[in-house]
Design a protein around this nucleic acid. Structure first.
Length: 310
DNA sequence: CTTCTTACA
DNA sequence: TGTAAGAA
């Protein structure tokens, strides 16, 4: 009794879709098409509901083929939606990246086509490519040095940047600058000399890492407590670092070693410091200057050590 | 007046 | 997908 039936025109009016389209769906088997005596297609209320479902799926971007499979129960709704969602999210990420590229370009004082090209190229360089870039870089600077595998692996791990799916313009710029640094011959050469100085036969990586970690934490705590680098407590931390690092490198904690430390610090706070900063930007760390502050404090404490040393 | 099919843009 | 044309 309550069963209501519609001609194609009626269904078109109440669904707000064209007669043509409904006919097309019927012919494709997406909608049942019972015929009346006069060969008119007739539709039920459940057919109207199905038509609404099809519209919703279509507007979600699901293709007619997938809808067909869903209706033929060869796919579940969850499967269809999951597949569509995966594609959608990929597209969204791609668009976000592109928007970030445009913003990064527009952020420049006077953007040129070369800038856009450059940002675009870099943003499209996959994380895998970047990983390869870092590996080649580490290979190059480790060449000749007796660096152990564990250390090398860790070095690569901590040096590989990761471009987020939804990067800010700053992150695009950081990503681009990092790639440049990795391809910079001078930078590589400097680091290589530095590595060679470290990796002598006497170097004990585990002890060095240990000392560095301990010192970093001690310095960080001291800074938090407002202790100045000249204070006795700071001097103790600095002296301990000098002893421990010298021992880990098979050297004496003398004046020469101290000077070498200063030189090391100058280099570290240069391009290496910039590298760390860029990595921090990519990780979205707001406090990217923290490590720099800690090492600067330690360097000041070292400078305040009584001269001459023993 | 409506729908059907087929063909075309 | 829209539109046209001739038939039912």
């Amino acid at each position: 009794m309550g069963a209501k039936f519609y001609t194609i025109g009626e269904l078109a009016r109440l669904s707000g879709q064209s007669v043509r389209r409904i006919r097309y769906y019927s012919d494709k088997g997406l909608l049942p098409s019972d015929r009346s005596a006069g060969n008119y297609r007739i539709y039920s209320e459940t057919d109207a509901a199905r038509l609404d479902l099809i519209r919703a799926l279509r507007e979600a971007g699901v293709g007619l083929a997938a809808i067909g499979k869903l209706i033929g129960r060869r796919l579940s709704l969850a499967e269809v939606l999951q597949a569509r969602l995966a594609i959608l999210e990929t597209e969204i990420a791609a668009r976000r990246r592109m928007a970030a590229v445009l913003r990064a370009t527009l952020r420049l004082p006077n953007p040129a086509d070369a800038d856009l090209r450059r940002f675009w190229t870099m943003a499209n360089r996959s994380n895998k490519d970047m990983h390869a870039l870092v590996e080649r870089f580490v290979e190059r600077i480790a060449e000749g040095a007796a660096m152990d595998e564990e250390w090398r692996r860790r070095m690569i791990e901590t040096s590989v940047p990761d471009l987020p799916d939804d990067p800010t313009p700053d992150q695009i710029a950081a990503w681009t600058e990092l790639a440049d640094m990795l391809e910079d011959e001078d930078f590589a050469r400097d680091l290589k000399t530095e590595m060679a100085a470290f990796w002598t036969g006497a170097f004990d990586p585990a002890a060095y890492r240990d000392a560095a970690l301990r010192t970093y934490e001690a310095a960080q705590a001291a800074i938090a407590n407002g202790i100045p680098p000249q204070a006795a407590e700071a001097q103790a931390i600095a002296a301990a670092w000098l002893d421990d690092s010298a021992r880990a490198m098979g050297r004496e904690p003398d004046r020469a070693f101290l000077d070498w430390q200063f030189a090391q610090y100058e280099k570290q706070s240069g391009r290496m410091g910039r590298y760390r900063q860029l990595l921090a930007i990519l990780r979205g760390e707001n406090d990217s200057a923290e490590p720099d502050r800690v090492w600067a404090w330690l360097n000041d404490a070292l400078r305040a050590l009584p001269v001459p040393l023993k």
